[in-house]
């Protein structure tokens, strides 16, 4: 039972951008016409001036908290202190969305700061379901769980990733954050079909979409697609985004750009490109229904 469901579809669909510290002053000074802002929760769990910046932002824009450190896939469970700090931040900022990842990063008191992949097994599913349920109870919120960008596949995985996400939704009551760039990256690296992946997700659970840039590196004769959020959104990801909008409706969408950070105007151009893509690809009457 979810303590307090947050229905993302009740939020006016609009395009948001990831708010990075370098853009903070310009955003406050110019107040660009953007629907909402998203920040990485872990950057605001300490003290100092960062939470104060968030208070300022929160007065001007709806806010989404995107976690990268809860480690929903940890076999040893969730860190109570992290949950407590996240709950405090949620109370302070009243975000309209709170999201995390289908991944793990904590084992044996070490935080390995990346979104590490899980083997998709029944055991993993039980663990992630329990962890998501605990997080939702502790935070008093429905979480959106994001599909990860993956570079490897475990031999002993038995459940396709979108099916794993679907079962997680069914058993925990969480929603999904569909990162279409991550789908492109994962499918490119693991030789999967991105369109089929998208079709296999439970559409009604998707409450947010992420789009971002990626790069390619060569390893011998093979290339790997790297989810580096350091460039404009690539054409095939735009295509996948339009497919996602058709399937999921006008849910809030976010342009992520974390590395090689461009001028704010360029990031806003990407966001407005996404804004223009939406009406062209979606039957809005159907979305409103």
């Amino acid at each position: 039972m979810i303590p307090k469901a947050q229905d993302a579809r009740a939020i006016p669909a609009a395009i948001g951008i990831g708010m990075r510290t370098l853009h903070f002053d310009e955003i406050i000074a110019t107040r660009p016409a953007i629907g909402w802002l998203e920040v990485h929760a872990e950057n605001y769990l300490g003290g100092g001036p960062a939470p104060l910046r968030l208070d300022t932002i929160r007065q001007e824009y709806p806010l989404s908290l995107h976690g990268v450190g809860l480690s929903l896939g940890s076999a040893e469970g969730l860190a109570d202190d992290h949950l407590r700090r996240l709950r405090t931040l949620i109370a302070r900022t009243e975000p309209f969305l709170v999201s995390e990842h289908l991944s793990w990063s904590i084992t044996g008191d070490a935080y390995l700061n990346d979104l590490l992949p899980l083997p998709y097994t029944e055991e993993s599913l039980d663990i992630v379901v329990a962890n998501v349920a605990k997080a939702q109870a502790a935070l008093g919120r429905r979480l959106l769980v994001e599909n990860p960008a993956s570079y490897l596949r475990y031999r002993h995985s038995t459940i396709p990733e979108p099916d794993f996400l679907g079962e997680l939704v069914r058993r925990s009551g969480c929603g999904l954050l569909c990162d279409v760039n991550n789908i492109f990256v994962t499918c490119g690296n693991l030789d999967l079909n991105a369109e089929a992946y998208l079709e296999a997700l439970p559409a009604a659970a998707v409450g947010e979409i992420h789009i971002a840039g990626h790069s390619r590196v060569m390893r011998g004769s093979q290339s790997l697609v790297i989810d580096d959020h350091g460039s404009p959104v690539a054409p095939p990801v735009w295509d996948l985004y339009c497919r996602a909008l058709k399937r999921f409706g006008l849910v809030p969408s976010l342009v992520e750009w974390d590395n090689n950070l461009p001028p704010l105007t360029q990031l806003l151009d990407e966001a407005w490109k996404a804004e223009r893509a939406a009406p062209a690809t979606v039957d809005c009457d159907a979305c409103a229904a």
Binding site: E42, N43, L45, A50, G69, Y111
Partner: peptide, 9 residues
């Protein structure tokens, strides 16, 4: 390695 996810610490 870090002991928690708040890398500022």
């Amino acid at each position: 390695p870090p002991e928690c996810a708040v890398l500022a610490e």
